[in-house]
């Protein structure tokens, strides 16, 4: 079953890539943004599996985006691999420091405290005139191993990279969740004290998850920055982080593909609401969110599970 599913993920990835390249550009753009956000939400889902909901993933999303922006704009590094490497390293270092403090907290305090950190970054960026304050700045077109596709090809390049990242990181995340430390996360959610009795370190489990989630969020931010061509502090604002939680809840935590699919659907829903009801799109989003919480407590993935007639998993 594992290998089948893996193969399927690959096929799905290829299909998205092919579809993305064939689709009208506005749709493939939407897909790329959704892939970026999907990666952030994937990290969030890893945390949620351990019962922790971060309202501050915007922090790393923004860090990843700004690293990409600063490298392309000020250091003239445009290689997408170098940029990714840099944003992962920066975010991991920051997460390793903040995590020491944050991973002592649980539940709503974890949520609020992580939000506070991302708001501090927001405040810092607003004060920084060299980085364009609230206006942000533009990101130059990326290249890959010396190949620079120019403005027309750049979005296709980012799309391809994004799809590759989503598929490979999705598989990695899946393997992680099915590993011992992955299951330890669920043990943290269910009962921390029992985990400690069994000889596991709750702090270590949470800390590692937090860092992984941060790296995923930074990658998502980098993808978004490269495809949209612009970064601003709004990415660290609490509403951005709230959106990620929205998407995570929409997809559910049952499967690593859920956040990605939810991200695509969310972007579609939002742009659709925008086009149909320019005055009341927030209301549409609100009702959609309520409907999901009321009728699909385990997210959209429960549709899939219901369809399969399998025993529904208990999730948060």
């Amino acid at each position: 079953m594992k290998t089948k599913s893996l193969a399927l993920l690959f096929i799905l990835g290829l299909a998205i890539l092919a579809g993305g390249l064939l689709l009208p550009q506005w749709m493939s753009y939407l897909f790329t943004i959704a892939m970026g956000k999907g990666l952030v939400v994937l990290g969030l889902v890893l945390l949620m599996r351990a019962g922790l909901v971060s309202f501050g993933q915007g922090l790393y999303y923004c860090v990843g985006a700004y690293v990409a922006g600063m490298l392309t704009q000020f250091a003239e590094v445009t290689d997408i691999l170098l940029i990714l490497l840099a944003s992962i390293s920066v975010s991991v270092v920051i997460a390793a420091i903040i995590g020491l403090l944050l991973c002592r907290y649980r539940e709503i305090f974890f949520a609020m405290f992580s939000m506070a950190f991302s708001m501090i970054l927001y405040g810092l960026l607003v004060r920084m005139q060299v980085l364009g304050s609230t206006d942000g700045f533009n990101v130059a077109n990326p290249s890959l191993l010396g190949w620079a596709p120019g403005p027309e090809g750049a979005s296709d390049l980012v799309l391809a990279v994004a799809v590759f990242l989503v598929v490979s990181l999705g598989i990695l995340a899946w393997r992680y969740l099915n590993s011992l430390s992955g299951y330890a996360g669920e043990a943290v959610r269910e009962n921390e004290i029992r985990l400690e009795y069994l000889g596991g370190s709750v702090f270590k489990v949470v800390y590692v998850k937090y860092i992984i989630a941060a790296a995923l969020a930074a990658i998502g931010g980098t993808v978004t920055a490269l495809v949209s061509g612009h970064v601003d502090p709004e990415m660290a604002y609490w509403t951005t982080s709230g959106e990620f939680v929205f998407i995570a809840l929409m997809g559910g935590t049952a499967h690593v593909a859920a956040p990605i699919i939810a991200a695509v659907l969310f972007e579609a829903l939002r742009t659709y609401a925008f086009a149909v009801a320019p005055y009341t799109w927030q209301m549409i989003l609100g009702f959609a969110l309520l409907a999901i919480i009321l009728f699909m407590p385990s997210g959209l993935w429960s549709l899939v599970e219901r369809f399969q007639n399998k025993k529904a998993r208990k999730t948060t």
């Binding site: 593909a257 695509v264 899939v304 369809f307």
Partner: peptide, 23 residues
Amino acid sequence: MKHSLLTAATVACAMTTGGLSLS
């Protein structure tokens, strides 16, 4: 598991493309 992914992907595609062809 196989079906689950396929179904999900189909649902996603259908909703996105169907919902967005407003032009």
